[in-house]
C-alpha cells in the first residue's frame, strides 16, 4: 500500500486541539500556545500581508500612520488649543511632539489590540466553526498588527525624540519590563472581551466606548503630573483622583515617559498597581476564555 502522505515521513503529532483538553487546566494554555506558535505567526503574517498587499505604498503605511496621527494631534494641541498659562504640557524641556508620541504609540498598542481581539472570534468565525485548533491563537494573532505598528511607532518616536534634541540613555531599557506589564493587561483583557463578545455582541460596542473614554482618562496628550498637581491643589476631588489612578495605563504611560524622555528610572509606585492588574487580567482572561473556548462555535 502506498503511504497516504505520499511517502513523506511524518513525526508524531504533538498538537492537541484545545477543546479536547481538560478545561480546568490553566497550565495547558501556555502548552497549547507553544505547540501552536507556528500557526500564530502564520496568522499574524497573513494579517500583515493581506493588509498591505494591494496598497501602492505597502508597508510604508505602517510608518505613515503614526506620523500622521502625531502631526495632527501636535497641530491641534500646540497651535489650535494653545495652553493659556504657557506651562509646558509635559515636563520641563520635553517637546510636546515627543511627549505626545511617547504616550500615543503605547496607548495605540493597547487600544488596537483590545479592539481587534474583541472582534476577532466573530470575524474569524469561518475558522472557529469549522476547524478545531487552539482557540487562544485567534485573539492573540489579532494583536500581531498592533505589535508591528508599535515597533514602527517606536522607531518614529526615537527619531522624533533625537531630532528635537532629546537624549536616549540606558534608562530606556526600563521600557522592556513596562511593556511586559502592558502586554499582560492587554492580552488578558483581549482574551476576556473576545470570549464575552461571542456570547453578547454588546461587549464590542462597550469596549469601543470604554477605549474612547480611556484615551481622555489616560495621560496620552497630557502629563500625569497635571492630574496629581490639580489633586494636591484641591481642584480635583481626591476620590476622583483615586478613580483616575485605578486605570493602570495612567501609571504605565507616565513610567514610559520617565524612562525614555526624562532619562531616569521610573518611580517605583508607578509599577506596582499595573503589575497587579496585569496578573489579574491575564489569569482571569485566560480562565474565562478557556472555559468558553470549547463551545464558542455554538454562538457563532
Amino acid at each position: 500500500m502506498k503511504p497516504v502522505n505520499g511517502g513523506a515521513t511524518i513525526t508524531a503529532m504533538a498538537t492537541t486541539p484545545s477543546t479536547h483538553a481538560d478545561r480546568g487546566a490553566l497550565l495547558q494554555v501556555p502548552r497549547d500556545l507553544l505547540a501552536s506558535r507556528e500557526l500564530l505567526l502564520d496568522l499574524v503574517r497573513k494579517d500583515l500581508r493581506v493588509r498591505y498587499r494591494y496598497a501602492a505604498l505597502g508597508f510604508l503605511w505602517a510608518l505613515l500612520e503614526p506620523l500622521a496621527y502625531m502631526i495632527v494631534l501636535t497641530f491641534i494641541f500646540e497651535r489650535v488649543l494653545t495652553p493659556t498659562d504657557g506651562v509646558p504640557m509635559f515636563g520641563e524641556g520635553i517637546p510636546f511632539a515627543s511627549g505626545l508620541l511617547c504616550g500615543l504609540v503605547f496607548w495605540q498598542f493597547s487600544t488596537q489590540s483590545i479592539g481587534a481581539a474583541t472582534a476577532s472570534l466573530v470575524e474569524n468565525q469561518h475558522l472557529v466553526k469549522k476547524v478545531a485548533f487552539t482557540r487562544e491563537v485567534i485573539p492573540l494573532a489579532a494583536m500581531g498588527y498592533p505589535t508591528f505598528s508599535l515597533l514602527i511607532g517606536l522607531v518614529v518616536l526615537l527619531v522624533v525624540h533625537r531630532v528635537l534634541g532629546g537624549q536616549v540613555g540606558s534608562s530606556a531599557l526600563w521600557m522592556a519590563p513596562l511593556f511586559l506589564i502592558q502586554l499582560g493587561i492587554t492580552a488578558g483583557l483581549g482574551l476576556l472581551t473576545s470570549a464575552l463578545n461571542v456570547r453578547y455582541r454588546d461587549v464590542g460596542y462597550m469596549v469601543t466606548v470604554a477605549l474612547l473614554l480611556g484615551f481622555y482618562a489616560s495621560p496620552v496628550f497630557y502629563d500625569l503630573d497635571w492630574v496629581l498637581a490639580a489633586t494636591s491643589s484641591g481642584d480635583v476631588p481626591r476620590a476622583v483622583s483615586w478613580l483616575y489612578l485605578t486605570n493602570p495605563m495612567a501609571a504605565l504611560l507616565e513610567a514610559y515617559r520617565q524612562a525614555l524622555l526624562e532619562g531616569r528610572r521610573p518611580d517605583t509606585w508607578l509599577f506596582v498597581w499595573p503589575s497587579v492588574v496585569s496578573l489579574l487580567a491575564l489569569t482571569g482572561g485566560t480562565v474565562v476564555f478557556r472555559r468558553q473556548a470549547a463551545t464558542v462555535s455554538d454562538y457563532l
Binding site: M13, A14, S36, E38, L39, D42, L43, V131, F133
Partner: peptide, 12 residues
C-alpha cells in the same frame, strides 16, 4: 496556513 489550522507543523 491551512495545514497549520489542521494541526500540522511547518516541518511536516
Amino acid at each position: 496556513l491551512n495545514a497549520g489550522l489542521l494541526g500540522m507543523r511547518h516541518a511536516q
